[in-house]
Nucleic acid binder design. Sequence first.
DNA 1: CCAAGTGAGCTTGTATGGTAGTATTGTTTG
DNA 2: CAAACAATACTACCATACAAGCTCACTTGG
Lengths: 225, 225
Amino acid sequence: MDAITPAPQGSAAHRLEAELRRAIIGLELAPGTRLSEQEIAARFGVSRQPVREALIGLARTRFVEILPQRGTIVVKISVRKMMQARFVREAVECAVARRAAEGFDAGARERICDLLDMQDKLARRGDHAAFQRHDELFHITLSEGAGCPLAWEAVSDIKAHMDRACHLSLTGPEVMLPLVAQHRAIIDAIDARDANAAEGAMRAHLSEILRALPHIEAEHPELFE
Amino acid sequence: MDAITPAPQGSAAHRLEAELRRAIIGLELAPGTRLSEQEIAARFGVSRQPVREALIGLARTRFVEILPQRGTIVVKISVRKMMQARFVREAVECAVARRAAEGFDAGARERICDLLDMQDKLARRGDHAAFQRHDELFHITLSEGAGCPLAWEAVSDIKAHMDRACHLSLTGPEVMLPLVAQHRAIIDAIDARDANAAEGAMRAHLSEILRALPHIEAEHPELFE
DNA sequence: CCAAGTGAGCTTGTATGGTAGTATTGTTTG
DNA sequence: CAAACAATACTACCATACAAGCTCACTTGG
């Protein structure tokens, strides 16, 4: 059994895109890094074609920028774009929270409960990566339970960009635990079928996420444009 | 000068994707149609590779579905997904309208004025294609003027899907002119700096768009899944 | 010494050949 | 006659080769 390449699924292009995307969001590939099709192809033992398709996909979601006949680079973080992204995400997720308060799927409610407990554990353990993964699962399940899974697709890439920007701010449990508390506040409002409270709790949650952004920019100006 | 191929811009893959997308939205390529890479390549005088990249792009935006080793088809219209898409679009554009009422760019306001007059003319003339193009320009300019152009990117594909679904309902001026009136109502509320009224006008506008959908499905069941 | 020109070495973009897998169809058999 | 089976034609996918364009360093003329 090969533990290095767990052979996730799908085509080589899909696997490459998922892997590169993960590395970019996790800041393993720093903003500004030059990506060579040839180098990546050699690194993963495939041809240039699937690498190219993966990069095109990443360019479409604005994680990389392809400069024709010049090169491909990991895009730097833009504070202005991040604020605009938060605006869109807030609009969609607040509407989802409102709808969730009007009616929520029972099965999704069960899964949310488990997710919150798990997030609590991960926060205390200080596991950034797993915490972010379960944070994402929380918002996915919320959209599903509210009956609009397409809403998640619309904000999926936006959240990924925000996660990348805030990757360095999740330093320990003291930062992550309040986020779990905010999640619980949202769910409480949904359980109480209070749409205004649910929207308010979601808005407060999303408003705090980017609070550390100026601090990060001051510490790591090379990651920003 | 070659009038057939206006050589828009960019790579062959981009041109192909734009052209195919236009044809799909305009229902020239009916939902359910099988798309062959070879046939398209021969038709446009290019190789299969750029065609493939174009189809991958269209698959990412859910206009086609690629079945591995089987074929690629134009996706059929789903009423349920269309309702979910409207939900997301409403969330984003209502937030944009609200922000626009709090402050709007003067230059964008000028362009909106011209766009509305032009839309009026096109509606009376019964020019569906140009009307939809200017309808899109209206929403783009609104997002720009409100200071969140990224919001348009988020709903761009969603609106394209809705346009495809409603393509057959824009039969004449009697259908298009009310839409222009709704646009004017939105702008009036923004001019009055009344955020609630702006959001309400936008919500009413977006709510009416899909009203004809059941009618269309009854007349053209082969376009739906 | 400086500036403009030139060519080599990169890059992405495109074309083509080959492979694995699926649906179809013609054939064979119970 | 019907049903199971095998060969064929089609697909997306990947690998390889070639072409076009940009960057930059070196050269060369002033």
